[in-house]
């Protein structure tokens, strides 16, 4: 029986996606609690969760991981799990997980200092891309066209105050013809794929890229589901890119997937919010051990 408060949705910012999830819960007659993570606090000796199943839609990475870790410690089944959120929120950890699973990724390196990053960039070759380890929406992702530009960008990186910002994630630039592919995976099932087209080199919808329907091929299906499994994510937005040779590579996996553009491009082929609610209710029934 689904009782009042059995299910909680953690979110400090209610976007269109969260609103659709709330509406899907209401349509199913599920009594849920919206937890604004900005108001959350707890004693350390809490022994039991008030919410057996929790959907974590917190937009801030640090808060998302902390809330998931805490609720899991109290016995809740959290989607996505803290482990998955930690991996997806860190581009290097994601790349390591994808590589370990044998999935194709662009040539990528992590350098522990900006000086080491210069050496790594020289090894990868130009043009290349420097990305922050955390963050999203293409923010601070920098296209480095040659060594001179790399030296300048790395001077700025060296001046960043946070030690984590001086760990440098560098990647070969994949010529993608102005588009990449976003797949959404829920509970191991690939809901579909869309193209994200852009006139610029970054194809994030948050930066104005256009979402278009992309037929789901067996190859995309396998890569997307394998990528989600590699990072242990129940709900995942998998970014894929096709290189000049037609090879499809996995770029990254997002744990708090935004799906407004995806839903628009997919039209009535799938209801993402409904699928997410299905996944949440399954975890409510089966708990942490699935």
């Amino acid at each position: 029986m689904i009782t009042e408060g059995s299910v909680a949705v953690v979110a400090s910012r209610v976007r269109g996606e969260e609103r659709r999830i709330f509406e899907a819960l209401q349509r199913r007659g599920v009594e849920y609690v919206h937890l604004d993570s900005r108001t959350l606090w707890t004693f350390c000796d809490t022994t039991q969760t008030r919410w057996p199943a929790v959907l974590n839609r917190e937009i801030g990475y640090e808060r998302a991981v902390t809330v998931a870790r805490t609720l899991e410690a109290f016995g809740a089944a959290v989607i996505n799990s803290a482990a998955a959120t930690e991996i997806c929120g860190d581009k290097w950890r994601t790349t390591l997980a994808l590589c370990k699973a044998g999935l194709p990724v662009p040539r990528t390196a992590l350098a522990c200092t900006p000086d080491a990053a210069q050496t790594a960039l020289d090894a990868i070759g130009y043009p290349a891309v420097i990305k922050p380890l955390t963050g999203s929406w293409g923010r601070l992702v920098t296209l480095v066209r040659d060594r001179q530009m790399a030296e300048t960008v790395l001077e700025y990186v060296a001046a960043m105050p946070a030690p984590q910002s001086r760990l440098v994630y560098v990647q070969e630039m994949i010529g993608h013809g102005g588009r990449d592919i976003r797949a959404i995976v829920v509970n191991g099932e690939v809901l579909g794929t869309i193209y994200r087209r852009s006139e610029g080199w970054r194809t994030n919808l948050a930066r104005g890229a256009i979402a278009e329907y992309c037929p789901l091929t067996p190859e995309l299906n396998k890569l997307a589901s394998s990528a989600a499994a590699a990072v242990k994510a129940d709900i995942a937005g998998v970014d894929l890119i096709e290189d000049d040779d037609g090879r499809i590579l996995v770029l990254e996996v997002n744990h708090g997937v935004e799906f407004a553009g995806f839903q628009y491009a997919m039209r009535d082929r799938v209801d993402v919010a409904n699928e997410i609610v299905d996944c949440l209710l399954e975890r409510l029934v089966h708990g942490v051990e699935r």
Binding site: S12, I59, Y61, E62, G135, S136, G256
Partner: peptide, 11 residues
């Protein structure tokens, strides 16, 4: 006023 976008916000 809605909170300003923070460095670790994202998907």
């Amino acid at each position: 006023l809605a909170p300003e976008v923070e460095e670790d916000w994202g998907e």
